[in-house]
Protein backbone atom coordinates (compact mmCIF):
# COMPACT_ATOMS: atom_id res chain seq x y z
CA UNK A 1 0.00 0.00 0.00
CA UNK A 2 2.82 2.33 0.90
CA UNK A 3 4.50 1.72 -2.42
CA UNK A 4 1.31 2.16 -4.38
CA UNK A 5 0.91 5.59 -2.89
CA UNK A 6 4.35 6.86 -3.77
CA UNK A 7 5.19 5.27 -7.10
CA UNK A 8 3.83 5.76 -10.56
CA UNK A 9 3.92 8.60 -12.98
CA UNK A 10 3.11 11.98 -11.54
CA UNK A 11 0.43 13.68 -13.61
CA UNK A 12 -1.66 16.79 -13.17
CA UNK A 13 -5.21 15.95 -12.15
CA UNK A 14 -8.30 18.10 -11.98
CA UNK A 15 -9.78 18.48 -8.51
CA UNK A 16 -13.16 19.98 -7.68
CA UNK A 17 -13.71 22.02 -4.54
CA UNK A 18 -16.70 20.55 -2.72
CA UNK A 19 -16.62 22.54 0.52
CA UNK A 20 -14.47 24.84 2.63
CA UNK A 21 -13.98 25.17 6.38
CA UNK A 22 -12.63 28.22 8.15
CA UNK A 23 -9.89 27.09 10.53
CA UNK A 24 -8.74 30.51 11.75
CA UNK A 25 -9.26 34.08 10.54
CA UNK A 26 -6.60 33.51 7.88
CA UNK A 27 -6.58 29.77 7.22
CA UNK A 28 -9.09 27.67 5.37
CA UNK A 29 -9.45 23.98 4.68
CA UNK A 30 -10.33 23.09 1.10
CA UNK A 31 -12.26 19.84 0.73
CA UNK A 32 -11.53 18.46 -2.72
CA UNK A 33 -12.89 15.67 -4.83
CA UNK A 34 -10.11 14.15 -6.94
CA UNK A 35 -11.47 11.39 -9.19
CA UNK A 36 -9.02 8.49 -9.35
CA UNK A 37 -6.90 9.76 -6.45
CA UNK A 38 -4.34 6.97 -5.86
CA UNK A 39 -4.36 7.38 -2.08
CA UNK A 40 -1.65 8.89 0.09
CA UNK A 41 0.39 8.50 3.23
CA UNK A 42 0.07 10.78 6.22
CA UNK A 43 2.66 13.54 5.81
CA UNK A 44 2.65 13.77 2.02
CA UNK A 45 1.83 16.89 0.02
CA UNK A 46 0.49 17.92 -3.35
CA UNK A 47 1.61 20.53 -5.85
CA UNK A 48 -1.19 22.89 -6.86
CA UNK A 49 -1.03 24.68 -10.23
CA UNK A 50 -3.02 27.75 -11.18
CA UNK A 51 -3.10 28.95 -14.78
CA UNK A 52 -4.06 32.49 -15.76
CA UNK A 53 -5.98 33.19 -18.98
CA UNK A 54 -2.74 34.41 -20.57
CA UNK A 55 -1.03 31.08 -19.83
CA UNK A 56 1.01 32.26 -16.84
CA UNK A 57 1.18 29.51 -14.25
CA UNK A 58 2.00 29.46 -10.55
CA UNK A 59 2.77 26.31 -8.59
CA UNK A 60 2.80 25.81 -4.83
CA UNK A 61 3.06 22.83 -2.51
CA UNK A 62 0.40 22.21 0.14
CA UNK A 63 0.41 19.51 2.76
CA UNK A 64 -2.49 17.09 2.89
CA UNK A 65 -4.45 17.48 6.14
CA UNK A 66 -6.77 14.50 5.76
CA UNK A 67 -6.08 10.82 6.27
CA UNK A 68 -6.39 8.54 3.23
CA UNK A 69 -10.09 8.59 2.28
CA UNK A 70 -10.94 7.51 -1.26
CA UNK A 71 -11.17 10.42 -3.71
CA UNK A 72 -11.53 12.98 -0.94
CA UNK A 73 -8.60 15.21 -0.11
CA UNK A 74 -8.33 18.09 2.33
CA UNK A 75 -5.70 20.84 2.14
CA UNK A 76 -5.41 23.56 4.75
CA UNK A 77 -4.14 26.80 3.25
CA UNK A 78 -2.76 29.67 5.30
CA UNK A 79 -3.46 32.96 3.54
CA UNK A 80 -0.35 35.07 3.01
CA UNK A 81 -1.41 38.70 2.60
CA UNK A 82 0.84 39.47 -0.36
CA UNK A 83 0.87 35.93 -1.69
CA UNK A 84 0.17 35.04 -5.27
CA UNK A 85 -1.71 31.76 -4.81
CA UNK A 86 -3.02 31.50 -1.25
CA UNK A 87 -5.38 34.53 -1.46
CA UNK A 88 -6.98 33.01 -4.54
CA UNK A 89 -7.37 29.60 -2.89
CA UNK A 90 -8.79 31.00 0.36
CA UNK A 91 -10.89 33.93 -0.89
CA UNK A 92 -11.84 33.49 -4.54
CA UNK A 93 -12.24 29.77 -5.09
CA UNK A 94 -15.81 28.55 -4.49
CA UNK A 95 -17.49 25.18 -4.20
CA UNK A 96 -17.77 23.67 -7.68
CA UNK A 97 -14.62 25.41 -8.94
CA UNK A 98 -11.76 23.32 -10.23
CA UNK A 99 -8.01 23.44 -9.83
CA UNK A 100 -5.09 21.33 -10.97
CA UNK A 101 -2.97 19.30 -8.60
CA UNK A 102 -0.48 16.46 -8.69
CA UNK A 103 0.55 14.01 -6.03
CA UNK A 104 0.84 12.51 -3.58
CA UNK A 105 4.43 13.71 -3.22
CA UNK A 106 7.09 12.74 -0.69
CA UNK A 107 8.23 9.49 0.88
CA UNK A 108 10.51 10.79 3.62
CA UNK A 109 8.32 12.91 5.85
CA UNK A 110 5.62 10.25 6.24
CA UNK A 111 4.28 8.26 9.15
CA UNK A 112 3.96 4.53 8.69
CA UNK A 113 0.77 3.42 10.48
CA UNK A 114 2.28 -0.06 10.92
CA UNK A 115 5.17 1.32 13.00
CA UNK A 116 4.98 0.50 16.72
CA UNK A 117 7.25 3.35 17.86
CA UNK A 118 5.73 6.17 19.89
CA UNK A 119 5.53 9.40 17.95
CA UNK A 120 6.43 12.94 18.91
CA UNK A 121 5.04 15.65 16.64
CA UNK A 122 6.43 19.18 16.88
CA UNK A 123 4.59 21.85 14.92
CA UNK A 124 5.20 25.54 14.35
CA UNK A 125 2.21 27.46 12.98
CA UNK A 126 0.70 25.89 9.89
CA UNK A 127 3.41 23.21 10.07
CA UNK A 128 0.74 21.30 11.98
CA UNK A 129 -1.07 20.42 8.72
CA UNK A 130 0.87 17.28 7.68
CA UNK A 131 1.07 16.25 11.35
CA UNK A 132 -2.73 16.49 11.54
CA UNK A 133 -2.94 13.95 8.74
CA UNK A 134 -0.85 11.62 10.93
CA UNK A 135 -3.05 12.27 13.97
CA UNK A 136 -6.16 11.58 11.92
CA UNK A 137 -4.69 8.46 10.33
CA UNK A 138 -3.83 7.14 13.80
CA UNK A 139 -7.35 7.91 15.04
CA UNK A 140 -8.63 5.40 12.52
CA UNK A 141 -6.62 2.52 13.99
CA UNK A 142 -8.47 0.15 16.29
CA UNK A 143 -8.67 1.41 19.86
CA UNK A 144 -6.35 -1.32 21.15
CA UNK A 145 -3.83 -0.53 18.46
CA UNK A 146 -3.00 3.10 18.80
CA UNK A 147 0.66 3.89 19.26
CA UNK A 148 1.26 6.73 21.72
CA UNK A 149 1.24 10.16 20.06
CA UNK A 150 2.23 13.50 21.51
CA UNK A 151 1.96 16.89 19.84
CA UNK A 152 3.82 20.04 20.83
CA UNK A 153 2.20 22.89 18.94
CA UNK A 154 3.74 26.36 18.83
CA UNK A 155 1.45 29.22 17.77
CA UNK A 156 1.49 32.98 18.22
CA UNK A 157 -1.83 33.21 20.05
CA UNK A 158 -4.68 30.82 20.85
CA UNK A 159 -6.65 32.27 17.92
CA UNK A 160 -3.92 31.17 15.51
CA UNK A 161 -4.18 27.47 16.37
CA UNK A 162 -5.48 25.32 13.53
CA UNK A 163 -7.85 22.44 14.40
CA UNK A 164 -8.04 23.57 18.05
CA UNK A 165 -11.42 21.95 18.77
CA UNK A 166 -10.54 18.69 17.07
CA UNK A 167 -7.19 18.51 18.88
CA UNK A 168 -8.92 19.04 22.23
CA UNK A 169 -11.34 16.26 21.37
CA UNK A 170 -8.55 13.90 20.29
CA UNK A 171 -6.65 14.65 23.48
CA UNK A 172 -9.77 13.77 25.49
CA UNK A 173 -11.09 10.78 23.54
CA UNK A 174 -8.11 9.50 21.67
CA UNK A 175 -5.22 9.69 24.17
CA UNK A 176 -3.33 12.27 22.11
CA UNK A 177 -0.81 14.12 24.26
CA UNK A 178 -1.30 17.82 23.51
CA UNK A 179 0.83 20.77 24.62
CA UNK A 180 0.74 24.29 23.28
CA UNK A 181 3.51 26.83 23.21
CA UNK A 182 2.24 30.41 22.79
CA UNK A 183 4.87 32.78 21.47
CA UNK A 184 3.01 36.14 21.54
CA UNK A 185 -0.05 35.87 23.74
CA UNK A 186 -1.02 33.04 26.06
CA UNK A 187 -4.44 32.30 27.56
CA UNK A 188 -4.91 33.89 30.97
CA UNK A 189 -4.00 31.70 33.93
CA UNK A 190 -1.39 29.69 32.01
CA UNK A 191 2.35 30.13 31.54
CA UNK A 192 3.59 33.39 30.05
CA UNK A 193 4.28 33.47 26.29
CA UNK A 194 7.60 31.99 25.26
CA UNK A 195 9.39 29.95 22.66
CA UNK A 196 9.81 26.22 22.46
CA UNK A 197 12.49 25.26 24.99
CA UNK A 198 14.37 22.38 26.56
CA UNK A 199 11.84 22.49 29.40
CA UNK A 200 8.93 22.06 26.98
CA UNK A 201 10.67 19.21 25.17
CA UNK A 202 11.44 17.50 28.48
CA UNK A 203 7.94 17.83 29.92
CA UNK A 204 5.77 17.40 26.82
CA UNK A 205 7.91 15.11 24.67
CA UNK A 206 9.01 11.51 25.08
CA UNK A 207 12.24 10.48 26.79
CA UNK A 208 14.82 9.97 24.04
CA UNK A 209 16.22 6.86 25.70
CA UNK A 210 13.42 4.38 25.96
CA UNK A 211 13.15 0.74 24.87
CA UNK A 212 11.34 1.89 21.74
CA UNK A 213 12.92 5.24 20.75
CA UNK A 214 10.25 7.66 19.54
CA UNK A 215 9.90 8.72 15.93
CA UNK A 216 9.96 12.52 15.78
CA UNK A 217 8.39 14.71 13.10
CA UNK A 218 9.07 18.45 13.12
CA UNK A 219 7.33 20.80 10.69
CA UNK A 220 7.17 24.57 10.56
CA UNK A 221 8.96 27.67 9.35
CA UNK A 222 12.69 27.19 8.80
CA UNK A 223 13.81 29.01 11.96
CA UNK A 224 11.38 27.08 14.13
CA UNK A 225 12.47 23.74 12.69
CA UNK A 226 16.16 24.50 13.23
CA UNK A 227 15.54 25.53 16.85
CA UNK A 228 13.30 22.56 17.64
CA UNK A 229 15.66 20.04 16.00
CA UNK A 230 18.59 21.43 18.01
CA UNK A 231 16.63 21.12 21.26
CA UNK A 232 15.61 17.55 20.41
CA UNK A 233 19.20 16.53 19.67
CA UNK A 234 20.34 18.20 22.90
CA UNK A 235 17.66 16.16 24.71
CA UNK A 236 19.28 13.00 23.38
CA UNK A 237 17.12 12.14 20.39
CA UNK A 238 19.12 10.46 17.63
CA UNK A 239 19.29 12.71 14.55
CA UNK A 240 18.25 9.73 12.42
CA UNK A 241 14.96 9.52 14.36
CA UNK A 242 14.12 13.18 13.73
CA UNK A 243 12.45 13.97 10.43
CA UNK A 244 12.03 17.61 9.51
CA UNK A 245 10.07 19.60 6.97
CA UNK A 246 10.56 23.31 6.47
CA UNK A 247 8.29 25.75 4.76
CA UNK A 248 8.64 29.43 4.22
CA UNK A 249 7.35 32.43 2.31
CA UNK A 250 7.90 30.49 -0.91
CA UNK A 251 5.02 28.30 0.19
CA UNK A 252 2.55 31.14 -0.30
Amino acid sequence: MARAAVLGRLTWQVATLTATRDETATAKTLVLDVPGWPGHLAGQHVDVRLTAPDGYTAERSYSIASPPDGDRLELTVQRIADGEVSPYLTETLEAGDQLELRGPIGGWFVWDPDSAAPVLLVAGGSGVVPLMSMIRARARAGSGNKVPFRLIYSVRTPADALYADELTKRARDDSLGLSYVYTRMAPPGGPAPGRISATVIASAGWPARSPEPPAVFVCGPTGFVEAAARLLIDAGHAPARIKTERFGPTGT
Partner: peptide, 27 residues
Protein backbone atom coordinates in the same frame (compact mmCIF):
# COMPACT_ATOMS: atom_id res chain seq x y z
CA UNK B 1 12.15 43.27 1.15
CA UNK B 2 11.39 39.96 2.73
CA UNK B 3 14.25 37.54 3.06
CA UNK B 4 13.53 34.12 1.68
CA UNK B 5 14.25 31.28 4.05
CA UNK B 6 15.85 28.20 2.68
CA UNK B 7 13.52 25.21 2.60
CA UNK B 8 14.47 21.56 2.42
CA UNK B 9 14.32 18.68 -0.02
CA UNK B 10 10.72 17.83 0.85
CA UNK B 11 9.75 20.92 -1.14
CA UNK B 12 11.09 19.49 -4.41
CA UNK B 13 9.47 16.06 -4.21
CA UNK B 14 7.31 16.87 -7.24
CA UNK B 15 10.20 18.23 -9.30
CA UNK B 16 12.31 15.17 -8.46
CA UNK B 17 9.46 12.88 -9.50
CA UNK B 18 9.38 14.69 -12.87
CA UNK B 19 13.10 14.27 -13.38
CA UNK B 20 13.75 10.81 -11.92
CA UNK B 21 10.29 9.26 -12.34
CA UNK B 22 10.53 8.06 -8.74
CA UNK B 23 10.04 9.23 -5.19
CA UNK B 24 13.46 10.68 -4.32
CA UNK B 25 13.04 12.68 -1.10
CA UNK B 26 14.04 9.61 0.94
CA UNK B 27 16.95 8.80 -1.40
Amino acid sequence: MRTVDALDGNAIGGLLREVFRAEMTAA
